[in-house]
Design a protein around this nucleic acid. Structure first.
Length: 478
RNA sequence: CGGGGUGUAGCGCAGAUGGUAGCGCGCUUGGUUCGGGACCAAGAGGCCCGGAGUUCAAAUCUCCGCACUCCGACCA
């Protein structure tokens, strides 16, 4: 594909990445602002991406025995406050319901910022025996967090997500669940969204309020800033004890179950935009694209063209693909630009010349590569091209990640590398909070994670020079 | 929550020194086009973000809000 810009409505990412991002959100018709500050409307095209993500993830969750439930949206203040750390972590951003009709409520009710408390309260009443464990629950819902500044998908006061909550008989089982779900997310990012990730554990400073350990999949955007993709927590029996969730064990003693939670959100749509998009707009991974193939009839007024285009659609539909034909009166150029902006992975062009030659032309969104294919090979060719789109997207994103991980042995070096290249800066770290604070203050970076695959870069902490305990990734994060 | 910027038609923007609104794109209808954002013609569409002031008169001046946006601090 020629490199010149074809979509004037979208600011070039090199000129202003933030504006480029916002332009795509609006111009690709993913999202619109609502009338309450910080709230957004997911428009049909944006919501369809989310539905595809949901469908695929939900199937994965169910394969490993998880069941969906629906919890109330309101949490009594007294219940929310039972676990100190969680409350402290979320207190500044909880929205409250204080009135029912015109009457003031006796007790304030919180809009859920997350549902650990509701699940624990429920379990405290329904769990009796070790035979009922594990309980592997998930819910798809929205939550409210009164954020101070907001951006579409990346940070809004209401966002849609799934939150998995499980309780187990033993710590080992719960830890295995935490790891399993982290890997489930990592696979989803890499195999479905074509975004390579770094798996790791969060520092105490960055972990979820109330968790014993928080794990994360971190990804890198095209501006070389980091984005946390999804998260998986191990709680130990902390919440069980706080909420009095107990069961009678195999040995007839009263025990506290071990708990996990894990979540992923509509922020993943933001990750897709910033990991794959270009100056012509969105580039969608085929697996979540609402339209996987757009069929464009060329010179559609000429006899047979529209019929041929519709026939291609029928065949691709029958092959299980999500397909549309655009037979509007807009010009070919307009249509090309339009579907590029919306990130449709594959375009099929068919016109009089093609029909004469018994072929059609397939064009990949990610690299603009055109391939003429015989009409009778359409289905296999389309599937092949979609596979190549995925592979091309993944390789490009992987290259971006691999080329933006730098090792540093001092804070100054880390700072210089970040300023020059962005990306992840890896160093050794002593484990002390003070060094994280220093890195934030002096180099503008927060710790992203301690990767599960550790490397020994040296003996001492890059910040303080004391003996190092972990290798850690730093970055500028969304 | 601190610091900048911006709010005028669906979108992008003009509207000096105050006099009740315009352009481009888009939209509607009809026609000609159609292999990378076509053209002609005729139309529709505005409590100029909101509220108070000042004034004979406010999109324009003054306050106070609100929203969006960018940069920080906080978070998925």
């Amino acid at each position: 594909m020629a490199k010149e810009k074809r979509v004037e409505q979208i600011t070039d990412m090199e000129v202003d990445f933030a504006q480029w991002y916002t332009d795509i959100c609006r111009k690709a018709e993913l999202v619109e602002y609502a009338s309450v500050k910080g709230f957004t409307i997911l428009r049909p095209y944006g919501y369809a991406i989310w539905e595809n993500m949901q469908r695929i993830m939900d199937a994965e969750f169910k394969k490993t025995g998880h069941e969906n439930v629906a919890m109330p949206v309101l949490i009594p203040e007294s219940l929310l406050k039972k676990e100190g750390e969680l409350v402290n972590g979320f207190a500044p951003e909880v929205a409250w319901v204080t009135h029912g009709g015109s009457e003031e409520l006796e007790e304030r009710l919180a809009f859920r910022p997350t549902s650990e408390t509701m699940f624990c309260d429920h379990w405290s009443r329904v769990l009796h025996s070790w035979r009922e464990l594990p309980m592997l629950y998930n819910q798809w819902c929205s939550v409210i967090r009164w954020e101070k500044t907001t951006r579409p998908f990346l940070r809004s006061r209401e966002f849609w997500w799934q939150e998995g909550h499980t309780i187990h008989e033993t710590a080992a089982e719960a830890k295995a669940e935490t790891e399993q779900q982290l890997n489930c997310y990592a696979d989803f990012f890499e195999k479905v969204l074509a975004i390579p990730v770094v798996r790791g554990r969060k520092t105490d400073k960055e972990k979820f309020a109330g968790a014993e350990a928080t794990y994360t999949v971190e990804c890198l955007m095209k501006d070389h800033k980091a984005l946390q993709g999804a998260t998986s927590h191990y709680f130990g029996d902390k919440f069980s004890r706080a909420y009095d969730v107990t069961f009678t064990g195999r040995d007839n003693t009263l025990q506290y179950p071990f708990q996990t939670s894990w979540g992923s959100t509509t922020r993943m749509i933001g990750a897709v935009i910033m990991a794959h998009g270009d100056n012509n707009g969105l580039v969608l991974p085929p697996a979540v694209a609402p339209i996987q193939v757009i069929v464009l009839p060329v010179a559609q007024h000429k006899p047979g063209v529209l019929e041929a285009a519709n026939a291609l659609r029928e065949r691709l539909l029958a092959a299980g693909l999500r397909v549309k034909v655009d037979d509007s009166d807009n010009s070919m150029g307009w249509k090309c630009a339009q579907y590029e902006m919306k990130g449709v992975p594959l375009r099929v062009e068919i016109g009089p010349r093609d029909i004469e030659n018994g072929q059609c032309v397939l064009v990949r969104r990610n690299d603009g590569e055109k391939t003429a294919v015989p009409l009778d090979a359409l289905e296999s060719a389309a599937e092949e091209q979609l596979r190549l789109v995925y592979e091309g997207m993944y390789e490009k994103a992987k290259k971006n990640l691999d080329e933006h991980i730098f090792a540093a042995s001092s804070l100054e070096e880390a700072k210089a590398l970040q300023e020059k290249n962005g990306g992840f800066i890896k160093t050794m770290w002593c484990g002390e909070l003070q060094c994280e604070l220093d890195m934030k203050e002096k180099a503008g970076m927060s710790s992203r994670c301690m990767p599960l695959e550790q490397e020994k870069l040296g003996e001492v902490c890059a910040c303080c020079g004391k003996p190092a305990k972990h290798m850690i990734y730093w970055g500028v994060a969304y």
